[in-house]
Simulated scan of single mutants.
Amino acid sequence: MTVIGFLSVAPVVENSMASEVAKAVDALEDFDVAYETTPMGTTIEAEDIGELFAAAQAAHEAVDGDRVSTLLKIDDKRTTTAGAEEKVASVERELGREPSGDAT
């Protein structure tokens, strides 16, 4: 089984969140998960839903602040072991190319 999650952890602050977000990402290192950080959040991949939840909780708790906003979206692939890279590759195959993100 492969569980893929999209995690966004952000303190409610007026200035840059980078140092606090870095704490959340660093907390993932203590878990058996693969992850990729993007400008809008972090994709996490685990073999077990419990490990994904534990990693997300640790990331949330690593952020200091009076108020922290956390979003966790889960894709629990119960009948296959295909991971995040395979999902992206499927879209690329349909396009016949890598997505460019270029609107021109």
Rank of each mutant, 00 (worst) to 15 (best):
I4G: 03
K73F: 05
D48W: 00
T70N: 04
T38L: 09
Y35T: 13
S19H: 12
D75R: 06
L95Y: 11
G83W: 01
P11Q: 12
G101S: 13
I44D: 01
D76Q: 09
S90P: 03
I49D: 01
A56K: 08
A22G: 11
A18Y: 12
E61G: 01
G41T: 04
F31D: 01
T43E: 09
A59Y: 07
A10K: 08
G50R: 01
A27C: 11
N15M: 11
I44S: 01
V3D: 02
K87P: 06
L52Q: 04
E92L: 05
A62W: 09
A84W: 10
L52R: 02
E14M: 03
V63I: 10
G101L: 08
T42C: 05
V25P: 11
G96A: 12
E98G: 05
H60F: 11
Y35E: 07
L72A: 13
N15Y: 06
A89S: 14
A62G: 08
E29D: 15
E47H: 10
E29C: 06
Q57Y: 08
V12C: 13
E29W: 01
T43I: 14
V25D: 08
E14I: 01
A89L: 07
S100A: 04
L95R: 06
D26E: 15
M1T: 13
T43A: 12
E45R: 01
P39L: 05
E45I: 00
D76P: 00
P39F: 03
E20P: 11
L52D: 00
S8A: 11
V25S: 09
E85C: 03
A84K: 05
T37L: 15
I4P: 01
G101W: 08
A89V: 10
D32F: 10
R67C: 07
Y35Q: 09
T38P: 00
F53T: 00
G5D: 09
E85L: 14
S100Q: 12
E45M: 03
V91C: 09
A58D: 12
P39T: 02
A54S: 14
T79R: 14
A59F: 05
M1L: 06
F6D: 09
G50F: 04
E61T: 06
V3W: 00
V63D: 04
T38E: 02
T70R: 07
D26K: 15
A24L: 07
M17I: 14
P99T: 04
F53C: 05
V12M: 11
T81G: 08
M40K: 07
D48V: 02
L52F: 01
L72Y: 14
A58L: 12
A59E: 02
G101T: 10
D26V: 08
M40T: 04
V12G: 02
E85Q: 15
G83T: 00
L52C: 05
R93A: 15
G50T: 03
I74S: 03
T104H: 12
